[in-house]
Computed example of a mutant assay.
Amino acid sequence: MSYLGMVTEVVPFAAHGGEAGQAYYARPTTQQTVGGVVLIHHMPGWDDWIQEATRKVAHFGFACIAPDLYFRERPGSPDDCAARARAKGGVSDDQVMGDVAGAMAFLRAQSNSNGKVGVMGFCSGGRHTYLAACRLKRIDAAVDCWGGRVIVEDPADITPARPVAPIELSAGISCPLLGIFGNDDPNPSPKQVNETEAVLKKLGKTYEFHRYDGAGHGFFAADRPAYRPEQATDAWRKVIDFLDRTIGPRARFA
Rank of each mutant, 00 (worst) to 15 (best):
M1N: 14
G5T: 14
M6K: 12
V7M: 02
V10R: 07
V10Q: 05
V11M: 04
V11H: 04
H16E: 15
E19D: 15
G21F: 09
Q22N: 14
A23H: 14
A23W: 10
R27Q: 14
P28T: 13
V34S: 03
G35M: 13
L39R: 10
H41E: 14
H41M: 13
H42I: 01
G45L: 12
D48S: 06
D48A: 09
I50N: 01
Q51L: 08
Q51F: 04
A53S: 13
A53V: 13
K56V: 01
V57D: 04
A58M: 08
F60H: 14
G61N: 07
G61W: 10
F62R: 11
I65L: 15
P67H: 06
R72V: 15
R72Y: 05
S77G: 11
C81R: 12
A82P: 15
A83M: 09
R84D: 11
R86E: 14
R86I: 15
A87R: 09
K88Q: 15
V91L: 07
S92F: 01
Q95D: 11
Q95N: 08
V96L: 07
V96P: 10
M97G: 07
M97E: 11
D99F: 02
V100A: 07
A101V: 01
A101Y: 08
G102V: 02
M104T: 13
L107S: 07
R108H: 08
A109N: 11
A109W: 04
N112A: 05
G115Q: 05
V117N: 04
G121L: 02
G121I: 02
F122W: 11
C123H: 02
S124I: 14
H128T: 07
R135A: 07
R135F: 02
L136W: 14
D140Q: 07
A141S: 06
A142V: 07
V143G: 00
C145V: 00
R149Y: 12
R149H: 12
V152F: 02
D157P: 05
D157E: 11
P160N: 10
A161L: 14
P163M: 06
S170K: 08
A171V: 10
A171N: 08
A171K: 12
I173Q: 06
P176V: 03
G179P: 11
G179C: 09
I180H: 00
F181Q: 11
G182Q: 05
D185G: 00
P188R: 06
S189A: 12
S189T: 12
P190M: 06
V193S: 13
T196Y: 03
A198T: 15
V199I: 11
V199Q: 08
V199Y: 05
K201W: 09
K205A: 04
Y207N: 13
E208G: 03
E208M: 05
F209C: 01
H210E: 00
A215V: 03
G216T: 04
H217R: 02
D223V: 10
R224V: 01
R224S: 09
A226V: 15
A226T: 15
Y227L: 10
P229N: 06
P229K: 04
E230L: 02
A232F: 00
A232M: 01
D234H: 05
D234M: 03
W236G: 00
V239A: 00
I240E: 03
L243I: 01
D244L: 01
T246P: 13
I247E: 03
G248C: 02
G248K: 07
A251S: 10
A254K: 13
A254T: 14
